[in-house]
Amino acid sequence: MDSLTQIVLGIATAELVAGKKLHNKTFLYGAVLGTIPDLDIVVGKFMSAVGGVAIHRGLSHSLLFFVFLAPVLGCLISKIEKEKINFNSATLLAFWCLVTHVVLDVFTSWGTQIFWPLEHRFALKTIFVIDPLYTIPLLISLIFVWKNSDYFLRRKYAIRGLISSSSYLLLTCILKLFALQQFETALQNQNFAYQELIVKPTAFNCILWNANVATPKGYYLADYSLFDSQPIRFTFYPKNEELEEKLVNSDDFQRLKKISEGWYLVTEHNNRLFFNDLRFGLLNDQPENPQFAFSYEFVNEAHGTLVAHEVPKAKRDGKALLQKIVTRIKGN
């Protein structure tokens, strides 16, 4: 999830674990601890475009890593706050703030290696990485926590915020199952034979859902709004395997294939090759020249090596995507 959400979740968790001992310092420690797993993004800045993406939500989001990191952080916190909290309590504080960060990330579309060193990335795909309806209840509850000095009142508000946000998270799971059923029914009614289907939410909401449908020759992409009244329409995108052959010797291409979990398309525009991650949707509705939210262009560098560079997203792209989502949410 986004940094603000992880900060407020970290603070709410810290309040429940150590609010009686640390009082308003839970805001400091919760914010810092809730942010630590995402410091892999900073490390990624010193790596190649693909390398930085590959390590994100890897080791730094592992429960095994937290088992070793939490005591180190607990020792540091207990020494700083030696008259307020002991080592055991500080270690529990660190551990639960780290764990709640990762558990929340599992609900998003980007895979999380929560059981690293196992390579599998878990992604429930029920909530977008930024969703105000999850974050706002927590944020409001923390305002009341900050304004009150009574421990039991603070704890009550923290619990209310966590219950509200967690209830919304549960709602997204239910809505995803409903959307999944709609896509499966539409595929059956339209006699589509397919190998695999994934469903995930669009940006900032849980009303409009996307589907990726894998077939031997390509992918069908579609969306579904809870307000739809017409049948779901699927658009086909061929795999372009002849373009993939041009990239088979590229290490970046092989790594991107793994990162995307096989949900990708290679496209060509103006003699330039692009790798497109299908899991994060389209910026336009042009099958003949699709523009995907996450794309990498392959550039010939030293010794003829094809290196992937992330395609920068312009502000107008984000604005166009939001306008498209707002229009589409209203129904077809």
Rank of each mutant, 00 (worst) to 15 (best):
M1F: 12
D2Q: 05
L9W: 12
I11F: 01
A12V: 06
L16T: 07
V17E: 01
L22S: 03
L28P: 08
G30Q: 01
A31L: 04
V32M: 15
I36S: 01
P37H: 02
P37T: 01
D38N: 08
D40Y: 01
D40E: 06
I41P: 06
V42W: 11
V42H: 08
K45N: 13
M47D: 11
A49N: 15
G51N: 05
G52T: 02
L59N: 07
S60L: 09
L64P: 02
F68P: 06
C75V: 12
L76I: 14
I77F: 00
I77E: 01
S78L: 04
F87K: 12
S89C: 10
A94D: 07
F95D: 04
W96Y: 15
T100F: 07
T100L: 08
H101T: 05
V106R: 04
S109T: 15
G111H: 04
W116Q: 07
L118N: 11
R121Y: 07
T126G: 04
T126N: 09
D131P: 03
P132W: 01
P137S: 02
F144Y: 11
F144W: 10
Y151K: 00
A158H: 02
I159Q: 11
L169W: 05
L177C: 10
A179Q: 03
A186L: 10
N189Y: 15
N191R: 14
Y194P: 02
Y194K: 04
E196Y: 07
V213I: 12
P216N: 05
Y220F: 14
L221A: 08
A222R: 01
A222P: 01
L226E: 12
P231R: 05
R233V: 12
N249P: 09
N249H: 15
R255P: 11
K257Y: 05
K257N: 11
L265Y: 00
H269R: 13
R272G: 11
F274S: 08
F275E: 03
G281I: 00
Y296I: 04
E301Y: 00
A308L: 04
V311T: 12
A314G: 14
K315L: 15
K315Y: 13
D317C: 05
K319N: 14
K319F: 14
K324A: 13
G331D: 07
N332I: 07
